[in-house]
Amino acid sequence: MASVESLANQVQTNLIHYNFWTKVKIHDINNGLKAVIGLPPSKLDSNDEEDQPEWVIPRSLVSNSSISVKEINEWFTGIAILEEKRPKRITIGIVNDDGTVVYYFIHDGIVKPRQN
């Protein structure tokens, strides 16, 4: 199965060289979990602040594809420890075995959808 490091590296490269993010770094959060943080080239949401860094949690779609609310909450608490503040939103980077990474926002609580 793909290691946590390998997944984090894939997401990091994808963010820098496919999505043109900058200052992308990998952090250890709790339980051997890794999170990637970086700056997107422009605001991801009109309500975001300029140069607002974004946390991305890498996950593999192929191995260990199950997910729970409890687990998501752990990501939030893990990042809260690093940031000293629970983030309003994180992003999950889902890595497929063909190298595709798809990114989804996970907002804390019930928020209204972006008006697209």
């Binding site: 199950s66 997910i67 729970s68 609310v69 798809v102 989804y104 907002h107 209204k112 959808p113």
Partner: peptide
């Protein structure tokens, strides 16, 4: 919500109809 596949499907579907997906635990 138990599977990442659901995540992809749900997120994609919701966005295409201008909504989001809410999961509760």
């Amino acid at each position: 919500m138990v599977d990442l596949q659901d995540f992809v499907v749900g997120g994609r579907l919701a966005t295409s109809v201008k909504k989001n997906i809410v999961i509760i635990g």
